[in-house]
């Protein structure tokens, strides 16, 4: 199967969500191709890219889905939350409204994504210091209260972009590998009764991981 530079131990599906214009596509372009476009085209529907990183000597392949920010698209983009084990919820540090909408995005994830999804709050455009509208500490506090990890990035000057992806992928990896020690593969997960179970537990078996993540 793997005819490309494509051997990996884990395949994790991660989604990029957040308001329109906060820089999701540029975060993806910076992380996967080390590119940045000041005026990149708006994303229509979803776009896909991938990159592999090393954690503890293991190759982790991140399959990243970039989604359109406009509310109208949510009916379409919500389909892509399925099977995602991580989400970068992005806002623009210079636009307070995009930060206020973070709660709506969290609800969106709760409604459509797996309950165990790892979420990282990302304040992008940290290079716009003079225009800052969202205080770092305020966002950090919000993240802590909601059990999210938090980081500020700049896709423009590359600050923290790799770190953000590295952190969330490592966090997912830790959870998955600990789970494998703790639970047998068929181990039950406790779920609230009103949540429809979605089978997204990654395992060491790359084949099954691939199937789950590509859906």
């Amino acid at each position: 199967m793997n005819t490309r530079d494509d051997d990996y131990d884990y395949l994790f599906k991660v989604v990029l969500i957040g308001d329109s214009g906060v820089g999701k596509s540029n975060l993806l372009a910076r992380f996967t191709r080390n590119e940045f476009n000041l005026e990149s085209k708006s994303t229509i529907g979803v776009e896909f890219a991938t990159r592999s990183i090393q954690v503890d000597g293991k190759t982790i392949k991140a399959q990243i889905w970039d989604t359109a920010g406009q509310e109208r698209y949510r009916a379409i983009t919500a389909a892509y939350y399925r099977g995602a084990v991580g989400a970068l919820l992005v806002y623009d540090i210079a636009k307070h409204l995009t930060y206020e909408n973070v709660e709506r995005w969290l609800r969106e994830l709760r409604d459509h994504a797996d309950q165990n999804i790892v979420i990282m709050l990302v304040g992008n455009k940290s290079d716009l210091r003079h225009l800052r509208a969202v205080l770092t500490e305020e966002a950090r506090g919000f993240a802590e209260r909601n059990g999210l990890s938090f980081i500020e990035t700049s896709a423009l000057d590359s600050t923290n972009v790799d770190t953000a992806f590295q952190n969330i992928l490592t966090e997912i990896y830790r959870i998955v590998s600990q789970k494998q020690i703790r639970d047998p593969p068929e181990g039950d997960t406790i779920r609230p009764q009103n949540v429809e179970p979605i089978d997204v537990k990654p395992t060491m078996n790359t084949d099954s991981v691939r199937k789950q993540c590509c859906q």
């Binding site: 229509i44 529907g45 979803v46 199937k211 859906q215």
Partner: peptide, 20 residues
Amino acid sequence: HHNVDYLQFSFRWLNNLLTR
């Protein structure tokens, strides 16, 4: 076979009438 879903690529084609 490779799990490519038509929605994943043709949504943009249809939404933007191939302009993209």
